[in-house]
């Protein structure tokens, strides 16, 4: 095979970078459009969409849309609600699903395989299918609060958290990851006298960073982007998350500048969370292939 000249190598490198830049732009453009538009008055925003100006911070630039958004809806409350519900759910979900994964991967108990199959099978059931029955269930559940026993969980944080404390995908991710860990580690820990819980907490979880990061990001996105369920279970503004809050901007007259400002604000937590975990997430995807 003839050896490639430096020129062909440079051309090939240029082409590769060109394609990568193009793909990156395709992904970045909507975000740039959102951010830039959030700084423009609605009229200018609409007229700019037919040209490259849509992606450029030109014309009448200001933070007025942000100020107006806060006046139109309790944005800070919505963002707090979403972050609170999502964070609590993700943390508890990771604990519960990793424990379940640990049990499926390492412990011997009757019916384990059948149970795992049932758990995996629930992956194909969408939330929309069970939303109504679930609503009936949570509407009749008791809760012990400051005023004694209350019935019905509607209009609360718990109604947005508890139904999502475990999910099949996260359990599956942990099972797959744990099954690839060397069994010798477990056995060494057993000989060292560790209980199953100590093995879980002190041996397995500390070396499960990649799968924890992956599961955390997937869960965070799924929870943060929830719309249907919180719409059904939160009638009062006090507990509403950001996605339900978006409705406030489509009542009466829609101001697209304000919509873009609101969207920009609610995107920040997602980006921050992803950037914090991206290294572990990419490691997981790269080292474990489809498992991650």
């Amino acid at each position: 095979m003839p050896s490639r000249t430096p020129e062909t190598r440079a051309t090939s490198l240029f082409m590769r970078y060109a394609i990568l830049v193009l793909v990156a732009l395709i992904f970045v453009f909507p975000l740039v459009f959102m951010l830039v538009s959030s700084l423009k008055p609605s009229m200018q925003l609409l007229s700019d969409t037919s040209s490259i100006r849509a992606f450029l911070p030109v014309g009448d630039i200001s933070l007025d849309n942000y100020t107006a958004s806060f006046a139109r809806a309790p944005v800070a409350l919505f963002i707090f609600n979403s972050i609170f519900v999502t964070s609590v759910t993700v943390v508890l979900n990771l604990v519960i699903c990793s424990m379940a994964g640990f049990s499926f991967a390492f412990l011997d108990w009757k019916g384990k395989d059948v149970m795992l199959s049932i758990v995996i099978a629930t992956l194909i059931v969408p939330l929309e299918t069970i939303a109504i029955p679930l609503l009936l269930v949570v509407n009749n559940l008791p809760w012990i609060g400051a005023d004694g026993i209350e019935w019905g969980w509607l209009n609360s944080y718990r109604v947005q958290i508890v139904p999502f404390l475990s999910d099949a995908l996260t359990v599956f991710l942990f099972v797959q990851y744990f099954r690839d860990l060397p069994r010798d580690l477990i056995e060494a820990a057993r000989i060292d006298g560790a209980s199953w819980f100590q093995i879980y907490a002190k041996v397995i979880m500390p070396i499960s960073g990649p799968v924890i990061a992956t599961a955390a990001i997937l869960r965070f996105l799924a929870m943060y982007n929830q719309y249907l369920w919180p719409l059904m279970v939160t009638q009062s503004e006090q507990y509403r998350p950001v996605m339900v809050g978006l409705q406030y901007f489509f009542q009466l007259n829609t101001d697209w500048g304000q919509v873009m400002a609101y969207l920009s604000m609610i995107t920040v937590p997602v980006l921050a969370f992803y950037l914090a975990l991206q290294r572990a997430f990419i490691t997981s995807i790269a080292s474990t292939g489809i498992k991650g």
Binding site: P182, D184, A188, I191, A194, P206, I207
Partner: peptide, 19 residues
């Protein structure tokens, strides 16, 4: 249980805790 048998084991893979 293994821990109650008064044994210690050295594994082929060493089985050291990586963290």
């Amino acid at each position: 249980e293994p821990k109650d048998r008064g044994i210690a084991m050295v594994f082929q893979s060493y089985a050291l805790y990586p963290h």
